[in-house]
Design a protein around this nucleic acid. Structure first.
Lengths: 182, 182
DNA sequence: GAGGCTATGCTTAGTCA
DNA sequence: CTGACTAAGCATAGCCT
């Protein structure tokens, strides 16, 4: 499976397969009741897209809104869209563009904050769900080290009392020594 | 062709066909050099997505910008019915919405991580020497809990495991890779 | 939930209109 | 760019682990 070099063949294949994907997508919606959106850029950069039940429904779902109307058939939606006045679409388009831009900037801001906080606060303060298996394993062994560390400390204290000399020992500064997970 | 009524069958079909669509999409990119993005909501409302080369690349292309960083690795983030053809503005409109949704999804993800991180104030990052024996013991058992928690998590993952290796598909939980641990 | 298996039917490449 | 046609190949429903 590799790139089709002949230009005409490539275009034909693109068109046919695009239709094929649209069909698969619609079948998924009818069979499973899923909502599907597809965006495709042709090799020449032309944009195509498909969505069911409608773009609005899918975007509303993203925006946690209640769909204003959800009983429309796809055909009806297509007709409705065709009937929409050009300037109305353009207006919405521009509005969306603005929203998209601010949303994108917000995302960037959050991401930067995220990274900075991670630097400040340390590697352990991360939601477990978002970690890969390897990262989780590393975290596990790191905590094991800390755990052992604390155990030693407790043992020392209860044996020799408060005689700790090194003043600024932090629990979390243990060195990483990846152990095998049982 | 109609909705599958049996719930189990419907879920299985959904999962298989989703993979099928992802495959078709990736084939389209390799055969024709197209860029494809797919967003799917399962019948239960769970979001899935697929994109090649990446969501960012596609949205940047749409915004006529030069991609800030173009890693060709396939990423996960994000189909159909009889073919319907839309005019160029409608298509652009849809694409913008799709990209907007993806961006929103990403923002939401980051925000959730942010909140979760805010909740926990890093209570363990305290000099051990400054703790009383009692506090130290509490800390010890807390770390034991975390430790056990991680162990459970690891066991669950390695048993029922998310198919974490194939990076092309993801279940909408997170695409964010945390920084590497020390 | 994931993956293997098989018969069936659908999709596709190639070609022409 | 779309439609039709055919042979070959692929996806999938259903069933099982």
């Amino acid at each position: 499976m590799k790139r089709i070099e002949n230009e005409d063949d490539r275009h034909i294949t693109f068109s046919k397969r695009k239709s094929g994907i649209y069909k698969k997508a619609s079948e998924l919606t009818t069979l499973c009741g899923a909502e599907v959106g597809v965006v495709i850029f042709s090799p020449s950069g032309k944009p195509f897209s498909f969505a069911h039940p409608s773009i609005d429904s899918i975007s509303n779902r993203f925006l946690n809104r209640i769909p204003p109307e959800n009983n429309d058939t796809t055909q009806a939606l297509v007709e409705a869209h065709k009937k929409m006045r050009l300037d109305a679409i353009k207006e919405q388009h521009n509005e969306l563009l603005n929203d998209f831009e601010s949303e994108k900037e917000r995302g960037k801001r959050l991401e930067i904050m995220d990274k900075e906080r991670r630097k400040e606060k340390g590697w352990w303060d991360v939601p477990i769900e978002s970690l890969s298996l390897e990262e989780l394993q590393q975290m596990y062994s790191s905590f094991q080290d800390i755990h052992d560390n604390l155990a030693n400390h407790l043992r020392m204290r209860s044996t020799f009392g408060e005689s700790s000399s090194s003043s600024m020992f932090h629990a979390g500064t243990s060195t990483q020594q990846p152990d095998q997970f049982p």
